[in-house]
Amino acid sequence: MHLPRQALGARIRNWLLAGMIVTAPLLITAYVVWQVVDFFDGWMNSILPARWNPETYLPFSLPGVGLLMAMAILVLIGWSTAGLIGRTVVRWSELVLARTPVIRSIYATLKQLFETLFAQQAKAFRDVVMVEFPTAGQWSVGFMTGEAPDAVGDQVEGPHVSVFVPLTPNPTSGFIIFVPRSRIRVLDITVDEAFKMILSFGIVGGNRSGLPQPSAPVEQPQGIRAPEQV
């Protein structure tokens, strides 16, 4: 029995879409991984002496050698900083950087950022929230990163929190906004689910349990005070 032409065309279209859904994530993932491996391979080949490069003695290339060597170097640096000599070198290096204009600000900011992101007790990006942004009545998904700095708390009334609102589909850029704690809505979803929602333009991620829930009232944290009445 022959299928109608329209039904056959619809099936071919569905098969094409199914093939794209299956292969596109695999191809994109493979491309990103290959770019990372190629970057580290090229970087290590540019700084590594030829006599130490395994590819010098092999008739073929070994993708990933640069990445493995970079990881080994990082492990070695981490191990050395645990000792007395390593801690002394790091301490003196930080003293030099702390006395260098411009560079000290960049280094201090980056160090604090990485310590916050990789510390075991870090609370950054722990809570997924919704805030009214960019205007009232329009809600955006963001990540609460902590209490507002003292400089901000001195200029506003009541406790405020820092919220990072990422852009779609590039969550590495976005906005830092300071929102009254009473105006945020905590979502019952994980950070991974929130990133899926952002990267997919809201198509993937989240569920019915992710509806905004009213935030519980909290005591006013230290370092944030209302402005004096004039």
Rank of each mutant, 00 (worst) to 15 (best):
H2L: 15
L3K: 08
L3A: 07
P4C: 04
R5I: 12
R13E: 14
R13A: 13
R13I: 09
W15P: 01
G19K: 05
G19V: 05
M20I: 15
T23S: 08
A24E: 03
A24W: 02
I28Y: 04
A30M: 09
V32Y: 07
V32M: 07
V37C: 04
V37R: 03
D38H: 14
F39Y: 10
D41P: 06
D41W: 05
W43A: 14
M44R: 05
M44F: 15
M44D: 08
N45P: 02
S46R: 15
I47G: 07
L48N: 05
N53E: 09
Y57K: 14
L58I: 14
P59F: 14
P59K: 15
P59M: 08
L62Q: 08
P63T: 12
G64A: 07
V65D: 02
G66M: 03
M69R: 07
M69K: 06
I77H: 12
T81Q: 09
A82W: 09
G83M: 06
V90R: 15
R91V: 05
W92Y: 14
W92T: 02
S93G: 09
L97N: 01
R99Q: 11
I103A: 00
S105L: 13
I106E: 03
Y107E: 00
Y107H: 02
Y107L: 00
T109G: 04
T109A: 13
L110F: 14
L113E: 14
F114R: 09
F118Y: 11
Q121V: 08
K123G: 03
K123N: 08
A124N: 13
R126S: 15
D127C: 07
D127Q: 13
M130G: 01
E132W: 02
E132N: 06
P134E: 10
P134L: 06
T135M: 11
G137P: 04
G142S: 09
M144V: 04
T145S: 11
E147H: 05
E147N: 05
A148M: 07
D150M: 14
A151G: 11
G153D: 04
G153A: 10
Q155E: 14
V156F: 05
G158H: 08
P159Y: 09
H160D: 03
V161P: 01
S162M: 10
V163Y: 01
F164T: 04
F164C: 03
P166D: 10
P169F: 01
N170K: 06
P171A: 07
P171D: 13
T172I: 07
S173C: 08
G174T: 05
F175A: 05
I176E: 12
F178S: 03
V179E: 04
P180N: 07
R181L: 06
S182M: 07
R183L: 05
I184C: 03
R185M: 15
V186A: 04
L187H: 02
L187S: 03
L187T: 04
D188T: 13
T190Y: 03
A194K: 03
L199D: 00
F201L: 03
F201A: 00
I203Q: 00
G206S: 09
G206N: 02
R208A: 10
L211N: 11
Q213H: 10
A216N: 14
P217N: 09
P217R: 15
V218K: 13
E219F: 07
E219I: 08
P227C: 13
E228Y: 06
E228D: 09
Q229D: 10
Q229P: 03
Q229G: 07
V230W: 02
V230H: 02
